[in-house]
Design a protein around this nucleic acid. Structure first.
Lengths: 225, 225
DNA sequence: ACCTGAACACCGTTCAAGT
DNA sequence: ACCTGAACACCGTTCAAGT
């Protein structure tokens, strides 16, 4: 196939003295978000940290929304998913543990991932893995898609609450102590608060994952029958 | 027990000519958030809508954070949970369907609920219901607490994505059409996109709920054995 | 007790200008 | 092509003042 030859590869005329590029801007934004949280992030602070005028940022990024979207993308794109196993259960465990891990590594960015206009394109990796695994499990395609949604909302939701309010807000013991909850009105909550053995997000996540997988296995058996 | 008599009940001296109170401020804030979204919410716009100076707001609310927290509280506190059934599965379905319903009625407020510093105190209602139901199901208390966390993150996560990015961001068909995803690299995603029969958030939620309940039932049987 | 008005230290983004 | 500087239309919050 003969085509017109492309325009000159636009080799850097003279090293193209740019102090910034998109890569550096996004990386710096992620670092800033991780350090101070989304709440305190601003383009002006980012620019100051980069030793540059606020407007310099706009040469590499459309604006605030585009930048934060790119930061969310970067976090999700960095996930290293383990190779698929022949056991679809193992595959799913590995996939969503990896996703959770990557998000926990950047707690400040989690709200960004949750509230991005478009989820990062990189979510198609776990989607592909999940749909393939559940097909192998024998789940009908429509259910597989819904199950993917279930696993994603579960995983990101757990990470979200872990990096924010749960322990401060829902932790039963703390709430009882603060007098926000009357023990008589909420006996089961009070009992849970009294029970010793601290709360573990890891253990809660693992339980959730096993419960979901067990439920999916049962449904797959039902579909096969 | 004789105590010092309390100070005069501070009866409204003369009708206390207040144009505002906390109730009205919070209600107006919720309305504004529902109309324009969290993104565009500001105290100044709220004040303008109330026909008042921005600073008047501060007489009834600590500041922006406190106000948005109160808005989240209001939404979750308004949930009408059905009475508990003898069947714990029915109880859980009713509980989390009601929670989901209330959140969907205020889509703009969902990000507020997710990102509030402390979850609304009102989440102790579904917590009490869930812990009681799962105790009846025979689940160990520790697992019951984790299962509550599972159900909550699942429900709020589903609502969150429904009111935001999913259809724009994860919807496979749209992504393929936009060329964001190469079909060869993601065959299962491509197949899902090609499958007819539209996406339904309601159906996805119901599947998730049934999967979780089935998984919990199995775990409860295991604990009983 | 509640509201106002002016002020402060910030924002994101535009535009025109420099190199 | 990339960065600067000044400007615009906003923010949340403070403080002192009014009634």
């Amino acid at each position: 196939m003969t085509t017109r030859r492309p325009p000159e590869p636009r080799a850097p005329r003279r090293a193209a003295r740019a102090t910034l590029d998109r890569e550096r801007v996004v990386a710096a934004a992620l670092a800033l978000v991780d350090r101070d949280g989304v709440e305190r992030f601003s383009l002006r602070r980012l620019a100051a940290g980069l030793g540059v005028t606020p407007m310099a940022i706009y040469n590499h990024v459309q604006g605030r929304r585009d930048l934060l979207q790119a930061v969310a993308d970067r976090v999700v794109a960095g996930v290293a998913y383990p190779a698929a196993s022949r056991d679809w259960r193992r595959t799913l465990r590995g996939c969503f543990r990896a996703l959770r891990h990557a998000c926990l590594a950047h707690p400040g960015a989690v709200p960004l991932i949750e509230s991005a206009d478009a989820l990062p394109a990189a979510v198609f990796r776990p989607m592909e893995i999940t749909l393939t695994a559940l097909r192998a499990a024998g789940l009908p395609p429509r259910d597989a898609l819904r199950a993917y949604f279930l696993l994603t909302t579960f995983t990101l939701g757990q990470v979200g609450y872990q990096t924010r309010g749960w322990s401060r807000g829902v932790d039963a013991a703390a709430a009882l102590a603060a007098g926000r909850v009357a023990p008589e009105a909420f006996p089961a909550v009070a009992r849970a608060a009294a029970g010793r053995g601290g709360w573990s997000f890891d253990a809660a996540f693992e339980l959730g994952l096993e419960v979901i997988i067990a439920g999916l296995a049962q449904r797959a058996r039902g579909a096969a029958r």
